[in-house]
């Protein structure tokens, strides 16, 4: 079933939180440079799917293979390292450290990887320029608008040149115009670095930025390319 050349493949994922079944045999695959939208009603398990794919949550059963490596065989530290170096993350909100300035926030993933402060902040500034928020470098997240903050977050997710970018409702807290701008910049940047993007959203107009769509309902996934 797995298309050849996939970067990240998940098969038969099952995950329950207590009595709630979040994933019930979900499948997923993505190629390098591909943008895949994960849609579905709230509570359908789409965020859980993203968390499993990113190695934040371990599924109860099923397999996830990243770049030919089975994730279940990695320990927590290895998965953390993977997230630090190979993955990038953008969330709906609450992800910027309020005490750090914007440029420090963007530099954070690099610094977690052990890059020196100067180098990290230089790279961070480069990405902030690409996302048109370099004038915010000295500001703290509390002092910038939602759209700006989200662009800072995108810059941060890209600063490590990740191979997979996980975006969970990246425009959820933004109006249409800001949301579009963020999506434009995000997909453009991802395409330019050939990063795969897993885009969880419930907005069709956001999903329209994708190459392919997966719908999750009641813990089951459905690849919309292969309907009927």
């Amino acid at each position: 079933m797995t298309p050849a050349g996939s970067l990240l493949v998940a098969d038969e994922l099952r995950k329950t939180y207590g009595p709630t079944v979040a994933l019930d045999g979900a499948e997923f695959s993505i190629h390098p440079g591909e943008v895949v939208a994960v849609m579905g009603p709230s509570g359908s398990g789409k965020s859980t799917l993203l968390h499993c794919l990113a190695g934040i949550v371990t599924p109860d059963s099923g397999s996830i293979t990243y770049n030919g490596r089975e994730m279940a065989t990695m320990n927590d530290a290895e998965r953390s390292a993977l997230r630090r170096s190979e993955f990038g993350f953008v969330f709906q909100f609450g992800q910027l450290v309020p005490e750090l300035t914007c440029v420090e926030n963007v530099a954070l993933p690099l610094r977690l990887n052990g890059t020196s402060r100067k180098e990290a902040e230089k790279a961070a500034l480069g990405w902030m320029e690409r996302l048109e928020v370099d004038d915010l470098r000295k500001k703290r997240p509390g002092e910038v608008s939602g759209g700006q903050g989200q662009r800072v977050a995108v810059a941060r997710s890209l600063v490590t040149n990740p191979r997979v970018l996980f975006a969970d409702e990246p425009t959820g807290a933004l109006d249409s115009l800001n949301g579009e701008r963020v999506m434009d910049l995000l997909t453009e940047a991802a395409r330019s670095t050939n990063a795969a993007v897993v885009l969880v959203t419930h907005e069709a107009r956001v999903a329209a930025y994708s190459d392919r769509e997966i719908v999750v309902r009641d813990g089951k996934s459905r690849d919309m390319e292969r309907v009927v």
């Binding site: 069709a204 107009r205 999903a207 329209a208 919309m224 009927v228």
Partner: peptide
């Protein structure tokens, strides 16, 4: 779903 995929395809083009 079929219709949905068609809609999204259109939206992608747009």
């Amino acid at each position: 779903d079929n219709q949905r995929a068609e809609h999204l395809r259109m939206m992608r083009i747009l």
